[in-house]
Simulated scan of single mutants.
Amino acid sequence: MNEPRWLDDEEQDAWRAMAGIVFALPAALDAQLQRDAGLTHFEYTVLAALSETEGRSLRMSLLATLANGSLSRLSHVVKRLEKQGWVRRATDPDDGRYTVATLTDDGYAKIVATAPGHVEAVRQLVLDPLTRAQTRQLREIGSRISRGLGVPAAGECPELNRPIP
């Protein structure tokens, strides 16, 4: 049996810093979005992804990947967004085996109204404390970790030809 590859002090400090962010940042973003727009961060991510695509439509399977959630979770969220009149679902006209989610005009208005507050929260919580060089390093680190997890990294979604939100 192989001996565990224990973390050295520097690795342990890096891991604890990362773990702190992984737990605290989603809660802070959710709190801001709930307070200001009545949305969860996951709902915001779904609306934002749709708003940035041609035709404001995506297959649910791709949308789940972009939102970093399961198809089941996405289905429940899209159902709630449909009730608000922000999203509608339909059978994919190109392949009836798939469902397409489309952002409505009201949904687009919601994301346009919500985005400035969310961007300000992202700036305050993540970007403002960093230098430009650290921001570039953060992108590279995030991309490497994402690829290791098998998740599309920022800028690596050819179906959209744009960065992932």
Rank of each mutant, 00 (worst) to 15 (best):
H76K: 10
E159G: 06
S75C: 01
L66T: 01
I164G: 00
R162V: 06
L138G: 12
I141V: 14
V151R: 13
Y108W: 09
A153T: 07
D8C: 13
I164L: 08
W15K: 10
T135C: 06
A24M: 08
N161M: 13
G142Y: 04
T131L: 09
D128A: 11
L130Q: 07
A17K: 08
N161W: 06
Q137P: 00
F42Q: 11
M18A: 14
F23W: 04
R97V: 12
E156N: 07
D105C: 00
D128N: 05
E3A: 14
P158Y: 06
I21E: 15
L58C: 12
E43I: 00
L130K: 05
A113T: 09
L63H: 03
Q134A: 13
G155L: 02
T91D: 05
R139H: 08
T65N: 05
A101T: 04
S143Q: 11
A64L: 05
V87Y: 01
A14E: 14
L47K: 01
M18R: 09
T91G: 06
R73H: 08
D13A: 15
V119D: 12
G38Q: 15
W86Q: 02
G69D: 04
R59A: 06
S70F: 06
D128F: 00
A101M: 09
S75I: 01
L33N: 13
E120C: 01
Q134F: 07
R88T: 10
L7M: 14
K79Y: 04
L71G: 12
D36F: 08
L81I: 03
A64P: 02
L63G: 06
A37F: 12
E54G: 11
T40I: 13
T45K: 07
K83Q: 13
I164W: 01
K110C: 03
T102E: 02
G20D: 10
P4T: 07
R139I: 07
D105Q: 01
G69M: 10
W15D: 09
P152C: 02
S143E: 10
A115H: 13
F42R: 14
S146M: 11
R139S: 05
V22Y: 14
V77Q: 15
D13I: 05
E11A: 09
E54R: 14
A31L: 10
R147D: 13
A109F: 00
I21K: 14
R59G: 05
D13L: 13
